[in-house]
């Protein structure tokens, strides 16, 4: 099993930390992982993206141009990465601010209205964990037990009181992800 993922959105949405928690969880489950961020000026107020690879064998290139799954959190990222999903792959997007929705028919598309859901529940800070939950529903690459272990390992101890809230956000994401038909 090798799962190659791009997560892309605005800087500040928690794109990089979502990828980090996913990578940590995979590592805790005993899998090989890599996490390759975009870095530099584009992160400040612009777009941020990270390539996460989870595999049961040695990972070759950490840098990729096509993906099994794209998790897309803004229009710019959709424009840039829709075409990079492998045929038969998965695209998950948050419809917030999307004016030109995806059009590909050779991939499976899902939506998660995580921006609205997190705001309604007063959980804006863990918006990204709702998105992560939606991904894990579609691609259960790591189990709940290891998501929790990943959170424990990646969050500093002083933030461990927030873990139950994060786990709840993953649940919400699982529950509210829906198929999208082009």
């Amino acid at each position: 099993m090798t799962e190659e993922i791009i997560i892309a959105g605005f800087g500040g949405q928690g794109v990089l930390s979502m990828g980090k928690i996913l990578a940590y969880s995979g590592m805790m489950q005993g899998l090989e992982v890599s996490w390759m961020p975009s870095y530099g000026p584009e992160m400040r107020g612009g777009t941020a993206n990270v390539i996460v690879i989870i595999s049961d064998s040695r990972i070759s290139s950490p840098v990729l141009t096509e993906f099994d799954t794209a998790i897309i959190l803004n229009q710019q990222s959709l424009d840039k990465f829709e075409s990079t999903v492998k045929p038969g792959g998965v695209l998950i997007f948050d419809p917030n601010g999307i004016i030109k929705p995806p059009t590909r028919k050779d991939i499976t598309i899902y939506t998660i209205d995580a921006t609205k859901k997190s705001s309604d529940l007063g959980l804006s800070k863990i918006f990204n964990m709702i998105v992560l939950g939606s991904y894990l529903k579609v691609k259960p690459v790591v189990t709940d037990q290891f998501i929790k272990a990943g959170l424990e390992k990646s969050l500093p101890t002083r933030h461990h009181s927030l873990i139950p809230e994060n786990v709840k956000a993953v649940e919400i994401g699982r529950e509210f992800v829906t198929s999208y038909t082009v």
Binding site: M27, V33, W35, M36, P37, Y39, P62
Partner: peptide, 9 residues
């Protein structure tokens, strides 16, 4: 920059 910035086990 790739090896410096990436995270792995």
């Amino acid at each position: 920059g790739v090896i410096g910035q990436m995270m792995e086990k």
